[in-house]
C-alpha cells in the first residue's frame, strides 16, 4: 500500500485516504464546444501509459478533499514530487532518468525462453 504525500495536509498518509485521478496536466479546452474530433480524442481518450515517470492526479478524498498532482515511477512506485493543483510540472530530470519509450512485448521479454 502506497504512502502518499498530500501537499495540502503537508504529510504522508496511507493510500486508503486517496483516490487516483488519471493523468495530470491535461487542461479542458476553454473552447471545448468548438474543437475537432481529433482534438477531442487527444484531450479525452488518448494517454501515454508510460513505463517510468508519470504525472498523475490524486484526490485526498478521505482527508482534506483536495485534488493535487504527483510524479510517480510506474515501475518502482516511488514518488518523486507531490504538488498542488494548478502548479507547474516540476523539472525532475536531475532526480529521475528519462522515461523509456520502448513498448514491452512478449517477444522482447520472453524471446530467449521460446
Amino acid at each position: 500500500m502506497l504512502l502518499i504525500y498530500c501537499p495540502y495536509c503537508e504529510e504522508e498518509r496511507s493510500e486508503l485516504e486517496f483516490r487516483h485521478g488519471g493523468d495530470a496536466h491535461i487542461a479542458r479546452p476553454t473552447n471545448i464546444a468548438d474543437i475537432t474530433d481529433e482534438e477531442f480524442a487527444e484531450f479525452f481518450f488518448l494517454r501515454d501509459n508510460p513505463k517510468g515517470l508519470i504525472f498523475e492526479r490524486w484526490r485526498h478524498i478521505h482527508g482534506c478533499g483536495r485534488f493535487f498532482n504527483a510524479a510517480r515511477d510506474t515501475v518502482s512506485d516511488k514518488f518523486y514530487a507531490s504538488y498542488k493543483a494548478g502548479e507547474p510540472k516540476p523539472d525532475l530530470s536531475a532526480v529521475h532518468p528519462a522515461t523509456e519509450k520502448t513498448v514491452e512485448t512478449y517477444e522482447a521479454t520472453e524471446g530467449t525462453a521460446k
Binding site: 495536509c9 504529510e11 498518509r13 496511507s14 486508503l16 485516504e17 478521505h62 482527508g63 478533499g65
Partner: peptide, 12 residues
C-alpha cells in the same frame, strides 16, 4: 508526536 491533544483529521 504527530497527533497531540487537539489534533484532528478526516480519514478512514
Amino acid at each position: 508526536s504527530v497527533f497531540p491533544v487537539g489534533a484532528c483529521a478526516r480519514t478512514v
